[in-house]
C-alpha cells in the first residue's frame, strides 16, 4: 500500500560536545504502509527515549531544521505536554501525529505539511507539526483544526502556531502564536 510521499525518520540525540547537525541521524525512509509499521515497531517508543532526544518524520528531501528551504518560511503547530503526560498520552499523541502525516489527513493542504517532531524534555515533552508557509492562513488553520480534532484535544485546550522565524529570534523558545485553534 504505497504512501503519497516517501517519509524519512530522523533521530536526534543531544550531545553537547558535538555540533547540532552531527547529533541528527537518519534512521530509515519508508514509502508504504507496511514499511511504516516495520519501522515504527523497530524503534523505541518516544516515551522510552532519554531527555534531550527527538524523533522527526519528514517528507523525503526536507531536513528537520528551520534552515531547510521548505521550512524557513514555515512554522509549527505546537502541542506542549505536562510532565505526567509522558506516561499516559505521549506515545498515543505521537502515533496519531504520524498517522495524520502518512495518511494524508489534511486534504487539499497536505502539500503544506513538511513533517512532525517530538521533543523529549525533562520540563515537558513537545509534539509539533511543521508546515511550509506561515503566511498561508487558510492552509495553516485547516491543518490546525484537523490536527487538534485527531489528537482528541478538548475544545478548552488551545494549541498555537508559531513561525520558525519568530522562534529562531527568541532565545527562550517562547515565540508568540501567529494562530491558535
Amino acid at each position: 500500500h504505497p504512501l503519497q510521499y516517501r517519509w524519512a525518520l530522523w533521530f536526534f540525540k543531544n550531545d553537547r560536545s558535538r555540533a547540532w547537525q552531527d547529533n541528527l541521524h537518519l534512521v530509515a525512509k519508508v514509502n508504504t504502509v507496511e514499511d511504516f509499521w516495520a519501522m515504527y515497531s523497530h524503534v523505541k517508543l518516544a516515551s522510552k527515549l532519554s531527555s534531550g532526544c527527538d524523533y522527526a518524520l519528514f517528507k523525503d528531501g526536507i531536513e528537520p531544521m528551520w534552515e531547510d528551504n521548505r521550512n524557513k518560511r514555515g512554522g509549527r503547530w505546537l502541542v506542549s505536554l505536562a510532565k505526567q503526560q509522558r506516561h499516559i498520552e505521549l506515545d498515543r499523541l505521537w502515533l496519531e501525529t504520524l498517522l495524520c502525516l502518512i495518511g494524508e489527513s489534511f486534504e487539499e493542504y497536505n502539500r503544506e505539511v513538511c513533517g512532525a517532531v517530538v521533543n523529549i524534555r525533562t520540563k515537558g515533552d513537545k509534539i509539533a507539526v511543521w508546515t511550509s508557509e506561515a503566511e498561508n492562513q487558510a492552509g495553516v488553520l485547516h491543518i490546525g483544526h484537523v490536527y487538534k480534532e485527531r489528537l482528541g484535544l478538548s475544545s478548552k485546550t488551545i494549541i498555537g502556531y508559531q513561525a520558525h522565524a519568530d522562534t529562531a529570534a527568541k532565545s527562550n523558545s517562547l515565540a508568540k502564536n501567529k494562530f491558535v485553534v
Partner: peptide
C-alpha cells in the same frame, strides 16, 4: 490518485506479519 488512508485503515496493518 491521492493516496489517503484513514487511521483505522492504517492501524489494521500494525500487527500484520511482514510478507517475505
Amino acid at each position: 490518485g491521492k493516496k489517503q488512508y484513514d487511521r483505522e485503515f492504517l492501524l489494521d496493518f500494525q500487527f500484520m506479519p511482514a510478507c517475505i
